[in-house]
């Protein structure tokens, strides 16, 4: 084996080890270290330090909390986990599976609004759906929620 191919092979192996180590460091620490998203309770519990920093917030769209302005493409809702809720504001149409009770993960910043109430300003709204796949029952149409939510002005 020539010395150049030996070098290349060594580099490749080193690259593999670094990539693997990186992957494990990112997720190996479990909850204590880096988590993909915070729950509403965890976000609030972080106190002052959490404001105006890029974070992810995950939970369920609190039923009945959705306010959608179809003309301004402006969306407001609450993300809930357990008994804790955070108000989320987002611009643009949400993904088609967005509805009451759906799981969501939002990327953005928690900011203090003028009225003293804090709002999570979402830059990116993602759907976290469940592992259930069901055909609609008789008379039910798939995506009825989305249809009524997005087509009309419900706020």
């Amino acid at each position: 084996m020539s010395s150049t191919s030996r070098k290349a092979a060594t580099l490749t192996i080193a690259g593999v080890i670094v990539a693997a180590a990186f992957g494990y460091m990112m997720f190996g620490g479990l909850e204590s270290n880096v988590v993909y998203f915070l729950t509403p309770a965890e976000l609030v519990a972080r106190g002052e330090g959490v404001y105006d920093r890029a974070v992810r917030l995950g939970g369920q769209v609190a039923p009945g909390s959705v306010q959608w302005d179809a003309n301004a493409l402006d969306l407001k809702f609450r993300v809930r986990e357990g008994t804790h809720e955070v108000v989320v504001h987002s611009k643009g149409a949400p993904p088609q599976m967005f509805r009451d009770g759906m799981g969501v993960v939002v990327e953005g910043k928690y900011v203090r609004a003028a009225n003293g109430q804090s709002v999570f300003e979402s830059k990116n709204l993602m759907i976290k759906h469940s592992e259930e796949y069901r055909a609609p029952k008789d008379g039910q149409m798939p995506q009825e929620m989305y249809k009524s939510l997005i087509k009309g002005v419900s706020s």
Binding site: H129, R134, A135, P142, Q143
Partner: peptide, 9 residues
């Protein structure tokens, strides 16, 4: 054979 899913069609 499969019907659309109720959430994702």
């Amino acid at each position: 054979s499969s019907p659309p899913d109720r959430d994702m069609g």
